[in-house]
Structure formats: structure tokens, C-alpha cells
């Protein structure tokens, strides 16, 4: 048994929100630099250069890299040997978000009711996913999910007959119809299998892998490579102004599914990919 006080979780979440929104990850920066080398369009190169300059300003001046500081998405992996003390876990996480968005001068982008649309004023509540795992550690991942790219995400229930080709067509069509809207160059998270809801969670988890990493399953890794190649033939390019680099990466997660089903979900992430993880 190991005790973790939820106050520590609250303070960690506060720091994660700010860190993720100011300091883009090294994996993303490496990916953008490689995109700058590969891009053939002069305008596309100019856009990627501006994104790298912008990332530098965020880091040096400690300001948000994008004005849409996102919906706070929290993934918790809670070791089953951990005992939480000091209060409610969800309250602690939301208090951390509240403090992070206030103290980090981040934008409050959440409305209380989808129809009334009154801003909650503190960017809470977070969307919280909790997994119980073996061990005595607590892993917290924060992702600031922008609205523009989330809006371009899609899911479908394909038939088993549509198979691999059906998945490829759906993913490529989703990116094609999104065009310039989700702030390309994008990261494409794909979930295949599971159920209607679970495929979308897989797609979001896929985004959180290191940018450009391939799945350990070779058949899935091959699908990732083929999808990236096809997407980058669309010509959409950085910011949709034309070019070779429409996507920085395609990352796929798969799960077993029903004999009747082939769920597929595409979660699009903009180039401003803001995620950080801490293990307590």
C-alpha cells in the first residue's frame, strides 16, 4: 500500500496545464523540423518556420503557444496498490485545472450547458479517464484539446467486408474534408475495433503517443505508414495553403471487436499538440 494525498494530484495538475500550454514537447519540435526539411512549398516552409518561432516564444516568454488553450483532458492510470487520501480525486483534478488556467493566464473555453452556452469561467470540468493498473504509482497525462481540430474528428461503424481498405478510405476522406480547418500539419489519431464509444477513446489515446512513433504491432504500423503516405498526397499542406506535409504523423490503436463490427474513429490533433505526463 502506498498513500498519495489528492492535494499533490491537484498541484501536479495545475503545473501540467501550464507546462503543456507554454512548452511544446521535444517530439513535436523534432517532427516540425523534419517537416520543414521535407516540405516543398515555399509558403508551407514559411508557415512551419513561423510555428517553430512561435514555439520558441512560448518557451522563452512563458506564454501559451495557442490562444485556444483547450478542453482539459486528463488520463489517470492509478496503481491498484495506491490509497488516495485527502479528498475526492475528481475534485482535486478540477481544482488543479481551475488553478492552472487562472494562474497560467490560459483561456477559459468551456460552456456549462451545450445549448445555453454560458461559460463556466474556470475551464472546468475536465474530461477525466481513469484506468486501474497494477503497481503503486499514479500516472497523470494532461492534454489541452483544441476545439478547431476536435470539430473535424469523425467516427463510423464500417462492415467487416469493408476491411482495411474501408478504414483507409474513411481516414483519408476525413482528413480531406477537414482541409485547412484543423490547423494542418496535423497529427491523426485513429482507433479501430472495440465498440462505438471505445474506438473514439482509442483514437484519442493514439494521439498521446510520442509524435511519429509507430505501433508495436507490425500490421498496425504498416497501416500507419500507408495512411501517412496517402494523406500527404492530398496536397493540403501546412495551414491548407498547399504542400507536401498535411500530417506530421498517423498513429493507430487497435482493439478486438465484435464479429459483426468494424468501428473506426479519427481524432484530429492540430500541430499545436500540447500534452504532458507526470508519474507520482
Amino acid at each position: 500500500m502506498r498513500r498519495i494525498n489528492t492535494e499533490q494530484i491537484r498541484d501536479t495538475v495545475e503545473k501540467l496545464c501550464i507546462d503543456a500550454n507554454y512548452n511544446l514537447g521535444d517530439d513535436l519540435i523534432t517532427s516540425l523540423r523534419s517537416a520543414l526539411e521535407k516540405e516543398e512549398s515555399p509558403l508551407g516552409k514559411e508557415v512551419i518556420t513561423q510555428l517553430l518561432d512561435n514555439a520558441e516564444i512560448g518557451r522563452k516568454e512563458q506564454v501559451p503557444v495557442c490562444q485556444d488553450t483547450g478542453f482539459a483532458i486528463i488520463f489517470i492510470e492509478l496503481g491498484q496498490e495506491v490509497v488516495l487520501t485527502g479528498g475526492d480525486l475528481r475534485e482535486a483534478i478540477n481544482e488543479g485545472i481551475k488553478r492552472g488556467y487562472k494562474n497560467g493566464l490560459l483561456r477559459k473555453s468551456i460552456v456549462k450547458n451545450p445549448l445555453d452556452r454560458i461559460n463556466t469561467g474556470d475551464n472546468t470540468p475536465a474530461v477525466i479517464h481513469t484506468d486501474i493498473v497494477p503497481g503503486d504509482k499514479l500516472k497523470i497525462t494532461f492534454d489541452a484539446k483544441g476545439g478547431g481540430c476536435e470539430n473535424m474528428s469523425r467516427s463510423a461503424m464500417l462492415t467487416p467486408a469493408q476491411g482495411r481498405e474501408g478504414v483507409i478510405n474513411f481516414v483519408v476522406e476525413t482528413v480531406k474534408s477537414a482541409g485547412a480547418n484543423p490547423c494542418p500539419p496535423i497529427i491523426v489519431g485513429v482507433g479501430i475495433g472495440g465498440t462505438f464509444d471505445y474506438s473514439t477513446l482509442l483514437a484519442k489515446k493514439a494521439i498521446l503517443r510520442p509524435v511519429g512513433s509507430n505501433n508495436n504491432d507490425k500490421t498496425i504500423a504498416d497501416l500507419e505508414i500507408e495512411l501517412l503516405e496517402k494523406i500527404n498526397r492530398l496536397g493540403i499542406g501546412p495551414q491548407g495553403l498547399g504542400g507536401r506535409i498535411t500530417a506530421l504523423a498517423v498513429q493507430v490503436e487497435a482493439f478486438p471487436c465484435h464479429i459483426a463490427s468494424l468501428p473506426v474513429a479519427v481524432n484530429i490533433e492540430c500541430h499545436s499538440h500540447r500534452t504532458k505526463t507526470v508519474v507520482i
Binding site: V47, Q50, L51, D53, N54, I57, G58, E61, V63, P64, V65, C66, Q67, G148, A180, C183, Q239, G240, L241, C270, H271, S272
Partner: peptide, 8 residues
């Protein structure tokens, strides 16, 4: 168009 994500 302005460059989305170049907010700083």
C-alpha cells in the same frame, strides 16, 4: 487567413 496556432 492568419497562421492558426502562431498565437504568441
Amino acid at each position: 487567413a492568419a497562421v492558426g496556432g502562431a498565437a504568441a
